[in-house]
């Protein structure tokens, strides 16, 4: 998706290359194609294209990838509600906001 770029430097994504076993799962699952394998190690080739979906981390067998764990594929209204819920302690229903 080269025609759409979002805010640079915002995504929370960390790859521990030492722990990487080179299975290539992250390369397969990333919908933005930001990983590549070199010498049996995964590397991030397009960090700013990351949308923090978390597919790579979920499919890494050695937990070498860390992605923003906040569960937030939501619209602005949902995020506002989740900010409010942090204050009030009430749970947010994704589909009734």
């Amino acid at each position: 998706m080269k025609e759409f770029r979002y805010i640079d430097g915002a995504a929370i994504l960390k790859l521990n290359e030492e722990a990487c076993v080179g299975c290539g799962n992250c390369v397969t699952v990333c919908p933005h194609r930001i990983f590549a394998l070199h010498d049996k190690k995964a590397g991030i080739v397009d960090y700013d294209a990351c949308m923090e979906c978390g597919a790579c981390a979920n499919n890494c067998p050695v937990a070498a990838i860390y992605v923003n764990p906040d569960d937030g594929c939501g619209c602005a209204a949902y995020i506002i509600n989740s900010w409010i819920s942090k204050v009030t302690g009430k749970r947010v229903n994704m589909f009734n906001n």
């Binding site: 998706m1 759409f4 770029r5 979002y6 805010i7 915002a10 995504a11 929370i12 919908p31 933005h32 294209a49 990351c50 949308m51 923090e52 923003n68 906040d70 937030g72 594929c73 939501g74 619209c75 602005a76 209204a77 949902y78 995020i79 506002i80």
Partner: peptide, 26 residues
């Protein structure tokens, strides 16, 4: 605001980015 709300429907906006822009936009 309604334009910003569309971030929730796109396949390329990260939550960290959306929160950042909401802090500026709101």
């Amino acid at each position: 605001y309604t334009g910003m709300n569309f971030t929730g429907a796109t396949p390329f906006t990260s939550l960290s980015g959306v929160e950042k822009e909401m802090q500026r936009g709101l």
